[in-house]
Nucleic acid binder design. Structure first.
Lengths: 226, 226
DNA sequence: GACAATTTCAAACAAGTGTTTTATTCATTT
DNA sequence: AAATGAATAAAACACTTGTTTGAAATTGTC
């Protein structure tokens, strides 16, 4: 199934799994070479060194992940902000957990979780290119939900972090979830279940923050009820 | 300051920092020995092998962390459940982030985050002894907040995971938070700020879930689509 | 103080690491 | 068909790893 790929492509592909599964340090180029049916020297030939391969893998994962599961492009239109939030969260979970995405903790998704903990130099660009725009988009959605009051920005940002945090946790704490709440394992079958929960929970959280701030003078606090 | 400790204690102490900072694999016993002013062979003498040392470190971290920042012991009393939730979340953040606790991402806390990703065999006992009781306590608090309806357990558990998830994320995604929202860095000075936000946000989330379920008869698990 | 057990130390060991070297095969162009 | 450059392969290299060894130092006990 990977036989029609070039050696270089096979190496990046398998390296994603192995770096994800083992971590940068514990993954050896000999494992990767064997898995990719390539010679160890091919890695240094194509990627200069182990870190060069890692950079290539990281870029590959993010570009493919956001290509297959983009977040919402249209932010300025008049879609219901609740619906935007729902789509954002669902996209996030599909990107994290689906087989065509980062496949949760058994695939390259784990590699991303590792970067959250110990960013390598290669991660700098990733944050700028992919993560910051995600955060900004989410902030703008929450802003919409809160009546667009720029003065409450420092209440909005923690909400965004809380939402991203739930996504990251569900995606990468799988080994622990497996042990304490196996029915909510972050796997393909549970994507919609988990995403729905996080959407509901976060919507409530945002509304609570809005309520806390209700005393402040502002335009009519948009009632978000169904 | 660590000079009055035995060699064995100095090794465990420094190993916590180094394992946390570098990870199990990347941390070398020579680094640890040098930091602890001990000979490399002392590690194998006292702990059999590197993994034995790691086990000792893990047990040390958890026992000390929960000793200094226990969660609430009294769950059956008549304290306001909201207040219980507030205390639970604050305890969690203090344990994760304070200097006398796990000191966030610069201390042994990072080691725990790593275990969430790749549990070692040593983590099994930790989950049973420390993490599961934490989850059960949190579930019982949320249960109180939801009117104690056991039939909605599968809505309660995800709420617990969402709360723990925010804690874990805030504590250990520091390198990313530093880059996308530096004013909310998980450090000593921000503990109360972050814990307060997570409390408010989560309270709103739980109430939203309760609202969603308000109309439901006791046992019809209606799907939450629009 | 003498003896025995525990603890510490420098050195060596075997295995595994990323990388480089050198030679060979393959594909493309002339 | 020959030539050229890219790609692959096997082996060697320099280095680091966790662990073990055997002797020295320290500690506790009589």
């Amino acid at each position: 199934m990977t036989d029609d790929l070039t050696t270089k492509e096979r190496i990046v592909d398998k390296a994603g799994d192995i770096f994800g599964k083992k971590g940068f340090r514990a993954a050896t180029i000999r494992m990767i070479a064997r898995a990719a049916h390539a010679n160890v020297a091919a890695i240094n030939y194509h990627f200069r060194d182990k870190e060069g391969l890692y950079r290539a893998v990281l870029e590959d994962i993010f570009s493919k992940g956001f290509e297959k599961f983009p977040s919402i492009q249209v932010t300025g239109d008049n879609t219901d902000p609740k619906e935007k939030l729902r789509i954002f969260i669902h996209s996030m979970f599909y990107r994290f957990l689906s087989n065509e995405g980062w496949n949760g903790v058994s695939g390259p998704g784990k590699l991303i979780a590792r970067e959250f903990l110990d960013p390598t130099p290669a991660f700098e660009d990733i944050v700028e290119t992919y993560i910051k725009p995600q955060k900004d988009l989410l902030v703008s959605i929450i802003m919409d939900l809160s009546g667009n009051r720029p003065e409450i920005m420092d209440r909005i940002i923690p909400c965004a972090l809380s939402i991203i945090g739930q996504g990251i946790y569900y995606a990468f704490a799988a080994p622990v979830i497996q042990r304490i709440a196996p029915q909510f394992m972050p796997i393909q079958e549970n994507i919609d279940l988990l995403a729905d929960h996080v959407f509901r929970f976060s919507l409530g959280g945002i509304q609570q923050i809005n309520t806390d701030l209700a005393g402040l003078p502002a335009d009519s606090p948009k009632e978000t009820h169904e």
